[in-house]
Design a protein around this nucleic acid. Structure first.
Length: 634
RNA sequence: GCCGACGUAGCUCAGCUGGUAGAGCAACGCACUCGUAAUGCGUAGGUCAGGGGUUCGAGUCCCCUCGUCGGCUCCA
């Protein structure tokens, strides 16, 4: 039998008999590798281990160390789950079942509505399938054959329908379950070392709310039990950071059924943090050439008719009628966006190119009637405050303005220690504005990112109908991402409100309008910060920076005087005056995640010093008030 | 909005197949006056989310509404 040549990823070459598979190649390299082989890669394409290699190809053996390995494993786990469901519910029809971050899911349709207890039976069945070390058998079919195999399966038939004519269709079977699938899969089900079904949910077929809703089970799968345990532990940790839980424990805000969904109420401590951030950002914006405006929370409906919200966004707005007397009734709408007010500021005078760029900002509280299913703590509320700004400028100025915004993004996120990534969304199918405007605006956005050496992804066609945008995604302390800042070009509102400026040539021109937020929603950003810091705000943000702990009642007076002196210096202080042992007060202050505790007893009163306890380091000794204030300011 | 789960004292939670509500913490009172992560005793606190129904009897079963949670969808 003639031999063939294959290349290995390390640059080496190997000879193999014709008809050799990836597994044969692995075996030739070493028996341990053969045992660890989960899949292969031939010329960059992931394949099963029993795929025949071709002459001259580069062959790589994928083991559990490869970054793709978990993905393959989870995809196979999804199939195992589907088989388990199929055996328990033979009438099941399946949608799609991909691997996702940390796990997998499968969508399916069965007669009964599953309850969480049903998951145990499915898990049990999966255990059996895994114990049997079932092999995944690949088959290749023509479109016509595939139609037959999935006879009576509407979802799979729809998927087959969309596969281009002439393309080979691959299917995988393990036991009783056959699925339309591109592959590859792990050699046998026994490689799934640990898995757990996590949650039950509903999901529209193909993500389309006009189509049937399927049942979805989410699961996670790992090579070892240890990895699964570590993952569950990670989820536990994330849960401890949940801003809704910490918001309650730290007395930052509350939600009230009687107030309405998505309408958080901020307590003194939560309000304090919000105002600290706001005042800090305001000063920074002044330094960067922004001017603050204040605009109404409500406008007559006419404004929203002009802006287009009345026609296109009404179901998301709060409108109400007011009887103005003598039978005259007016419609008013609560603002879901700050744009109209800012445009009216611009419009209030004849504007010249010399006035541009005009940068107007506002901490504008807006209300949006979000769908009931999406409200979520502070992260998705119906009332929230945007650190909103609109920049009116000439086409030539767009680039520099976006660069300046990106600089602000970098500065602001640096202060909180967030890393971030950017994405640009381009012209969608349905859009307004000329090709040239879109082109100029999109190039300005990308050019600004390039100018600041910021890498970005492009979401083709994902822009709003009225202009392209840049979105910024933060990465928090435990690696989750949050979309916050957005820089958005708007071709729509300048048109609708017909705003213009005088050019140097004394002609009339329409200004470019940029919307932008840096934090997004102040309250949502607070939620992100709570989770990022796990509730332990840095000193400059902490609503209470230091707690004073008098040891006994006789130290109360001294404690009060220390409080007054610290507050006079601008510190945020609380005295724990309740009649409790010192260690109880310390425990409470620790629980409240207060950065510093000042223990005051006889010794401190006498020497007029404070005994400082740092939240994470513990007792750091005595110092004078001045020294301590210096520490607070660090 | 859609699918599913859940809603018991201020907080965290217990309450089996229907028989008229319980703990810990917090609060309040008394005692203790304390040196770096929770002192003892006592008191009070609930139309079991709201409304309707089934039943001799409902926190427990059914329906509706509100809210919360997990997803999906939406996001001018």
């Amino acid at each position: 039998m003639p031999d063939i040549n294959i290349k290995l990823p390390d640059g080496g070459e190997k000879r193999a008999p014709e008809g050799a598979t990836v597994l044969d190649v692995a075996t030739a390299i070493g028996p341990r590798l053969a045992q660890a082989a989960l899949a292969g890669r031939i010329d960059g394409e992931l394949v099963d281990v029993d795929t025949v290699v071709t002459d001259g190809a580069t062959v790589e053996v994928i083991t559990d160390r490869a970054p793709e390995a978990l993905h393959i494993l989870r995809h196979s786990a999804a199939h195992v789950m589907a088989e388990a469901i199929k055996t328990l519910y033979p009438e099941a029809n399946f949608g799609v079942g991909p691997a996702i971050e940390d796990g997998f899911y499968y969508d399916f349709c069965i007669d009964k509505s599953l309850v969480p207890e049903d998951l145990a039976a499915i898990e049990e069945r999966m255990e059996q399938i895994i114990a049997e070390e079932r092999h995944f058998e690949r088959g290749e079919l023509t479109k016509l054959e595939a139609w037959d195999v999935f006879e009576g399966d509407p979802f799979k038939q729809e998927l087959i329908d969309e596969i281009p004519e002439g393309e080979t269709i691959s299917i995988y079977s393990e036991g009783a379950f056959t699925d339309l699938c591109r592959g590859p899969h792990i050699p046998h089900t026994g490689h799934i070392g640990a898995f757990k079904l996590m949650k039950l949910a509903g999901a529209y077929w193909r993500g389309d709310s006009t189509r049937p809703m399927l049942q979805r089970i989410y699961g996670t799968a790992w090579f070892t039990q240890k990895e699964l345990d570590a993952y569950l532990e990670r989820l536990d940790q994330a849960e401890k950071r949940d801003h809704r839980k910490l918001g309650k424990e730290l007395d930052l805000f509350s939600l009230h059924e009687e107030a309405g969904a998505g309408l958080p109420i901020y307590h003194p401590k939560g309000a304090r943090v919000l105002r600290i951030i706001e005042e800090w950002l305001r000063e920074e914006l002044y330094r960067r050439g922004y001017e603050e405006v204040i605009t109404p929370h409500i406008y007559k409906a006419d404004v929203w008719k002009t802006s287009g919200h009345w026609d296109n966004y009404r179901e998301h707005m709060y409108f109400f009628q007011v009887d103005e007397g003598e039978g005259k009734v007016n419609d008013y709408g609560i603002k879901p966006m700050n744009c109209p007010g800012h445009i009216m500021v611009f419009q209030n005078d004849v504007r010249s190119y010399r006035d541009l760029p005009m940068r107007l900002f506002e901490f504008g509280t807006v209300y949006r009637h979000e769908l009931s299913g999406v409200v979520h703590g502070l992260m998705r509320a119906r009332g929230f405050t945007q650190d909103d700004a609109h920049i009116f400028c000439t086409p030539e100025q767009v680039h520099a303005e976006v660069v300046a915004m990106l600089d602000l993004v970098e500065y602001v996120n640096g202060v909180f220690g967030f890393e971030y990534t950017a994405e640009v969304s381009t012209k969608p199918e349905k859009s307004m504005g000329s090709e040239e405007m879109w082109d100029l605006a999109t190039k300005s956005l990308m050019g600004a990112l390039d100018a600041r050496d910021m890498p970005y992804e492009i979401n083709e066609g994902e822009g709003a109908f009225y202009g392209p945008k840049i979105d910024i995604n933060l990465r928090d302390a435990i690696g989750r991402t949050w979309q916050t800042a957005t820089i958005q070009v708007d071709f729509n509102l300048p048109e609708r409100f017909d705003i213009t400026y005088r050019t140097a040539e004394n002609t009339e021109a329409r200004p470019f309008t940029l919307h932008r937020t840096i934090l997004g929603s102040m309250e949502r950003f607070l939620g992100i910060l709570i989770e990022h810091y796990a509730g332990a705000f840095p000193v400059w943000l902490a609503p209470v920076q230091t707690v004073i702990i008098p040891i006994a009642d006789r130290h109360l007076e001294h404690a009060e005087s220390v409080r007054e002196r610290l507050e006079a210096a601008g510190a945020r202080v609380e005295v724990y005056a309740q009649n409790e042992p010192m260690r109880v007060k310390i425990a409470k202050a620790q629980e409240q995640k207060v950065p510093y505790m000042l223990v005051l007893g006889d010794k401190e009163a006498e020497a007029d010093v404070v005994a400082v306890r740092e939240r994470t380091e513990g007792d750091i000794g005595q110092m004078s008030l001045e020294e301590f204030l210096g520490k607070l300011a660090e």
